[in-house]
């Protein structure tokens, strides 16, 4: 049987250009994304496992997956899974984002 399933993230062996040598700093918001995921996945909560997080960004579709940065993919995947599990709603997160953004602008 010829394999017909291949995730767009499954890129081992694909052609690609030179390895970009950028050494990017690890920013606070990125650490916060990891910290929140770790806590949500810990033994007291078990709300999002690493495997579910990966399924999350493997389900974005190739365009979203290819255009988002690494930590942005992770926070978006977390949001998708939390909505799927009915921990939060899309409306809730969108409203809260607007609230937080308004505070940034007023600073």
């Amino acid at each position: 049987m010829v394999e017909t399933t291949r995730g767009y993230h499954d890129i081992g062996g694909n052609p690609a250009g030179p390895v970009p040598k950028d050494e990017l700093p690890w920013l606070h918001w990125e650490k916060q994304v990891e910290a929140v995921r770790n806590l949500l996945g810990d033994g007291t909560r078990r709300i999002i496992s690493l495997d579910e997080l990966r399924r999350g960004f493997e389900s974005f579709g190739i365009e979203k997956y290819s255009s988002l940065s690494f930590y942005r993919r992770r926070v978006e995947a977390m949001i998708d899974i939390l909505i799927e599990k009915e921990v939060i709603t899309r409306a809730e997160i969108e409203a809260e984002i607007e609230t937080v953004r308004a505070r940034w602008k007023n600073v």
């Binding site: 049987m1 010829v2 394999e3 017909t4 399933t5 291949r6 995730g7 499954d10 081992g12 062996g13 495997d51 990966r54 399924r55 493997e58």
Partner: peptide, 17 residues
């Protein structure tokens, strides 16, 4: 194997078969 599974897989395409 070529299992033809969809969903989250940790066996990369390049080793199948």
């Amino acid at each position: 194997l070529h299992l033809g599974k969809t969903g989250h897989i940790r066996t990369p395409f390049y080793v199948r078969g």
